[in-house]
Write a protein that binds this DNA or RNA. Structure first.
Lengths: 115, 115
DNA sequence: TTATATACATAAGAATTTTAGGTATTATTT
DNA sequence: AAATAATACCTAAAATTCTTATGTATATAA
């Protein structure tokens, strides 16, 4: 796990959104899914991921179940009720931010453009 | 000046891009332009802006001229040669990151979608 | 005359991430 | 058989970037 740049601030949203789509996932699985979805361009570092998961759990947005698979411990995360509400909120926050970014960075384009 | 959050790291790109479009700008002007372009939704704080400008100047991407306007000091920033190259690089980096973000967060959509 | 706008700046603290380590099992390669 | 990579968790120091709070100073508006 290493190098990307950027991502700062969007990691929580990524975690929550992936869990909205997948019911439950474990940490390592999240890193692999992101790598796969972005053709290896975004690599979630473990030093960023695990503290983020622990924080979301401490905030009551995620719950955990530990399972034994092939003598290896897996810690599965799922959205709580509060977590489910938070996904929507965090997603529209991020979407709004990206739209504003585009307004700043591509001043020629009008609303409703293509990337 | 207050609250935004999200995508820490895009401030440098914003500064460089605005200077690519405007030849020269001073700090306060940048905060106002961003506020105006985003209908007040993104407010660049001075505590973030000035250190960022100083850092870009220290890296040789920006140059400065100080001017007196109505008894008030203004510090105008312009892109250096290196700065001009860096805009392109930073812009495609950010654009690529946003595309990857969309791949993670909107798995239904195919490349070339609308925001 | 008091507050707001313009215009710069810094410094403490918070939040997030990178880098670098650590443990342990299983699978693959040499 | 031994070494490496992959799977799977974790933490801690340092770096980076941002917020919040302050400070200075002039001009304008209430």
């Amino acid at each position: 796990m290493s190098n990307n740049n950027l991502i700062k601030g969007s990691l929580q949203t990524i975690i929550l959104k992936l869990l909205e789509e997948n019911e439950r996932m474990y940490g390592y699985e999240i890193t692999q899914r992101v790598k796969e979805l972005t053709a290896g361009e975004i690599k979630i570092t473990e030093g960023a991921l695990y503290p983020a998961l622990h924080k979301l759990e401490a905030e009551g947005l995620l719950s955990t179940e530990i399972e034994q698979v092939d003598n290896r411990v897996r810690k599965y995360y799922s959205l709580t009720k509060d977590g489910q509400k938070e996904v929507t909120s965090k997603m529209s926050e991020l979407q709004g931010f990206v739209e504003n970014l585009q307004r700043i960075l591509t001043p020629d384009l009008k609303p409703g453009f293509n990337i």
